[in-house]
Design a protein around this nucleic acid. Structure first.
Length: 905
RNA sequence: GCGGGGGUUGCCGAGCGGAAAAGGCGCAGGGCUUAAGACCCUGUCCCGUAGGGGUCCGCGGGUUCGAAUCCCGCCCCCCGCACCA
């Protein structure tokens, strides 16, 4: 329906370049949304984030700001390469998803066998969709992250971070597939995508009179003081050289150790039974304890060697009891549990043996209790009196720093299996480049800047605070993928979340790059230092080969646009990109260039189902546009949900939006050019109500509440208009200029089309309607409220009369008005005195006192009714009479100001 | 487990100290129409032959003249916990 209109105005906007933004005298507003990643078509999720951004950009533009709204494309990373490989392999699943959900024709799809072709194809598709939905983007600034110029920019950024000491080498644990020889992500996994990496502490117990080490894996290092023995499963173990020590560990543990950044060498297999009864020495405590067999030991969990703390570990307690060995548990933690804690809980739960599944529960309960409320007892040396939660951390640190213990990584859940079918391991990656987000100083600066920012919705500020505190060092280099090489270590590629942190300032460069003024070779360290950091000098920047004039111009442009006033983004980016965005800005830029505001929006599901790029279902932006058109899609998605709450796309609802928009379009078209006659009370009511709506809409938009804004601007105003027409209003045109403008940020094409029926300017550049208190008309509003209330009352009464033909209306007598006034001002008592002095009958006075609280002073009631007799008769299909003679006295008595007596017969 | 958000009338979703509680969707009835659609109106917790009454906002208590809205306890749901865009 609106296809032609939409195309027409998109062409006009482009032709007149109205969204191309350059520095001017006006106040600027720089808004960005995250550039999309091009491993598929844009979908409803992008549609939501981007449409919110666009509506706001348009709103701010109409509020008089010089608005810059740019967009580029993200192609860095592995998924695009992965996709190219899958297509080249003709992977059936991929072909299905991309033909069925991404709407790529099979013929086209099969050609996309290299990353370059994929980027080219999806960039073209994205650009076309983004234009067809009518975003007010300055397209002169588009780029992709593999552009040579962009890579120069990224290299500069990394050099500067390194110079600040924020990039360093380190090692860290990852989930790893030994077969693929690659770290695995959630979507690479067949099983275990819920598993996280847990740090066990492996405490080294030396065998008495030997150099053999038994590394006992535990999550409760503080219980070392209560160790009475250690456990081995009665099965085969191995002896291995680990960093120069002879360790006895399970076979599985040995395989894992190989990946853990240790020098590991297998010496020989050994049977656990060889050790049973022998003694090991508990470190720190220096106590000799025996090695005993236990079936509950899981050789596939950590080292497969376990220390036994029967007083605090239900498993140990039960196993010892079953074994029948005379060992006294050593209580080392005090809580409100009396006696031996493990014993108490085992008995309480009625646990039968070491294979009882309830043991797991018992362990958890006890752990929680002791961790949160426990105090270390006097038999724990210097830790005595300390809270368990604190002691645990201190002991772990101490043991590790004294080399009495090592960290042993293990999955929290098992098994973890790669898509290729191989069991995954925890691998410690060495010599990896890290961004040191854990740097306290850095964090403090980010936190302090956060306090000055606007975060929408505001409770996300707390979320950001927590995430900033929690953020750890991040590996920023990869072996595989598209992207920029680390300039000082070219074997590594900069990871994709790390290269998209401060690119908003690249939009300023991109314009000059696209104009051919700025070439990759011009983008030197000195130039960028000068442009973005106010470092060096114009002279040094000139070494880039650019003229002073050009450099000055770019610099001015940066100074003008920066900082970013609003970054509007999906909530999935809070814990990563948005954090990095803040960190990197804070690290590199001066205070005045730091981000001002962040807004977060929720997801979009499809008929109640989660969307998935790689599995479906998926609604592409293009498909939405083909089916419903740009304005319908925009209006619907803006109205679908507010802030971070998730939206559900339902085609049935969207279809009804099509109808709503048609109705709006026709209504305006039929009334817009009509001449406005003399302004009536009803007209003033419309103006008044509309003015309130304007206030609401602006208020909502200022808080980025697009749902509320659309609700008021479109649906509520529509309801006023309905009532207005029903009431016989003839001058709808009096609000139409403003209504069109009010809706222009949301449905710009239709508004542009309608606007041009009367004007030759672009409504997109018009001034947004302003709230004007002088246009409020309480008298008119009261009158309309009175009419609709009266109408409802009569209808209500009418229901109870068969064959109703006539309604008599009897407005309250004058003395009631006077009495009500007195009651309102001086209280009921005064009013009643006035009435009795006036000689009003007792029954009437009593009726008044009962009813006065829901009465209201409406000016000229009788007149209002008289002037609207026709309206009432038409609506009620009754004759309306003001003849008071026909109304029974007992009904007249209850007539009150604002609520006339009515009698239907 | 930790952190953030949330449970409202058939559904989505406003409201956050005084309304059976905005708006949208759905459903039902009526009008218009040759008819379907669209459009317009009405109803959509229960009761009611006079504009009325009753019961409601996860559960249980409390504060208050008055609570969906404030306080306490409990239950349930969603999201994040990364090296992946």
């Amino acid at each position: 329906m609106f296809v032609e209109i939409e195309r027409k105005w998109q062409e006009m906007w482009e032709k007149y370049r109205i969204f191309e933004a350059d520095p001017s005298d006006k106040e600027k507003f720089f808004i960005t949304v995250p550039y999309p990643y091009l491993n598929g078509n844009l979908h409803a999720g992008h549609t939501r984030t981007f449409t919110i951004g666009d509506a706001f950009a348009r709103y701010m533009r109409m509020k008089g700001y010089n608005v810059l709204f740019p967009l580029g494309f993200h192609v860095t990373g592995t998924p695009i390469i992965g996709l190219a490989e899958l297509i080249a392999k003709r992977d059936q699943r991929t072909i299905d998803v991309y033909t069925k959900f991404h709407d790529v024709p099979i013929g086209e799809l099969l050609k996309l066998t290299t990353p370059e072709k994929i980027v080219e194809y999806f960039a073209k598709e994205a650009l076309s969709a983004l234009k067809r939905i009518g975003y007010s983007i300055d397209w002169r600034r588009v780029f992709t992250t593999t552009d040579e110029a962009y890579q120069k920019f990224i290299e500069w950024q990394f050099w500067r971070l390194k110079e600040l000491g924020l990039i360093e080498k380190g090692s860290h644990p990852v989930r790893y597939c030994p077969n693929d020889q690659n770290p695995v992500e959630d979507h690479d996994l067949l099983l275990g995508d819920e598993a996280s990496i847990v740090e066990f502490v492996a405490i080294k117990f030396r065998l008495k009179d030997s150099d053999l080490i038994f590394p006992c894996a535990t999550l409760r290092a503080e219980t070392i003081f209560g160790v009475t023995n250690i456990w081995l499963k009665p099965t085969k173990y191995v002896i291995a050289m680990v960093d120069g020590e002879k360790w006895v560990v399970s076979k599985e543990a040995y395989e894992k150790l190989v990946f853990m950044d240790k020098k590991v060498e297998l010496l020989r297999e050994v049977d656990a039974s060889e050790f049973f009864g022998k003694k090991v020495i508990v470190p720190i405590v220096e106590r000799e304890v025996p090695i005993l067999p236990a079936e509950f030991v899981d050789t596939d969990n950590a080292t497969g060697v376990v220390m036994s703390v029967p007083a605090h570990a239900p498993y140990d307690y039960v196993a010892l009891k079953e074994l029948g060995v005379e060992i006294e548990p050593i209580v080392i933690i005090g809580t409100d549990i009396k006696g031996i804690p493990a014993k108490e809980i085992v008995e309480e739960l009625g646990i039968k043996g070491q294979n009882d599944p309830e043991l797991e529960k018992a362990t958890k309960i006890l752990y929680k209790r002791e961790f949160h409320t426990g105090i270390m007892l006097e038999n724990t040396g210097k830790f005595a009196g300390m809270k368990v939660s604190e002691a645990k951390e201190r002991i772990e640190k101490e043991l590790i720093s004294l080399k009495i213990a090592d960290v042993f990584y293990e999955f929290s859940e098992k098994p973890v299996v790669c898509r290729c079918g191989t069991k995954c391991v925890v691998k410690v990656v060495k010599d990896q480049w890290f961004i040191r987000y854990s740097n306290e100083n850095w964090k403090r600066k980010v936190l302090s800047h956060l306090e000055k920012m606007t975060i929408i919705p505001e409770y996300y500020k707390e979320e950001f605070r927590n995430k900033i505190e929690w953020l750890k060092d991040k590996a920023c280099a990869r072996r595989k993928g598209l992207g920029t090489r680390i300039p000082w270590d070219r074997e590594w590629l900069i990871e994709s979340l790390s290269d998209s942190t401060i690119y908003m300032c690249y939009y300023i460069l991109a314009k000059y790059v696209n104009l051919g003024i700025l070439k990759p070779e011009n983008i030197t360290m000195e130039l960028l230092d000068y442009l973005f950091l106010n470092r060096g000098s114009l002279e040094l920047a000139k070494n880039s080969g650019l003229s002073k004039d050009v450099i000055r111009k770019i610099k001015e442009e940066f100074e003008y646009w920066y900082p970013v006033d609003l970054r509007s983004s999906g909530k999935d980016l809070v814990a990563n990109h948005l954090l990095f965005y803040l960190f990197h800005h804070v690290a590199l830029f001066e205070e005045k260039y730091l981000p001002r505001a962040i807004a977060v929006n929720g997801y979009v599901s499809l008929e109640g189902q989660k969307m998935s790029k790689s599995k479906g279902p998926l609604l592409t932006m293009k498909r939405a546009l083909d089916t419903y058109g740009a304005d319908v899609t925009r209006l619907y998605i803006l109205h679908s949900a507010e802030y971070d709450s998730d939206a559900d796309w339902r085609s049935k609802e969207v279809e009804s939006f099509v109808e709503s928009l048609k109705r709006f379009f026709n209504l305006v078209r039929e009334n817009y050019t009509k001449e406005v006659n003399e302004v009536t009370l009803l007209d003033r009511w419309l103006i008044s109500k509309f003015n309130r709506a304007v206030k609401d809409v602006r208020d909502a938009m200022d808080k980025l509440q697009t749902r509320r804004a659309v609700n008021v601007a479109f649906f509520e105003v529509m309801n006023y208009v309905r009532w207005y027409i029903r009431r016989g209003g003839k001058n709808l045109a009096i609000i139409l200029d403003d209504w069109i403008k009010l809706l222009a940020p949301f449905i710009p094409h239709i508004c542009e089309e309608l606007w041009h029926m009367k004007h030759s300017s672009f409504v997109s550049l018009e001034k947004y309607p302003d709230f004007d208190p002088n246009k409020l008309d309480p008298v008119a509003e009261k009158a309309e409220e009175y009419i609709s209330r009266l109408l409802e009352d009569i209808k209500e009464v009418k229901k109870f009369v068969e064959n109703p033909r006539i309604v008599y209306i009897y407005p309250a007598e004058d003395w009631k008005f006077e009495a009500l006034k007195i009651a309102n001002e001086k209280g009921l008592k005064e009013a009643l005195r006035f009435l009795s002095e006036k000689g009003i009958a007792k029954e009437d006075i009593s009726a008044f006192s009962k009813k006065f609280k829901n009465a209201e002073l409406i000016p000229n009631e009788r007149e209002i009714i008289e002037q609207n007799l026709e309206f009432f008769e038409r609506e009620l299909q009754l004759r309306v009479s003001l003849d008071s003679e026909k109304i029974p006295v007992d009904k007249k008595r209850f007539a009150m100001p604002g609520r006339p007596a009515i009698f239907v017969c």
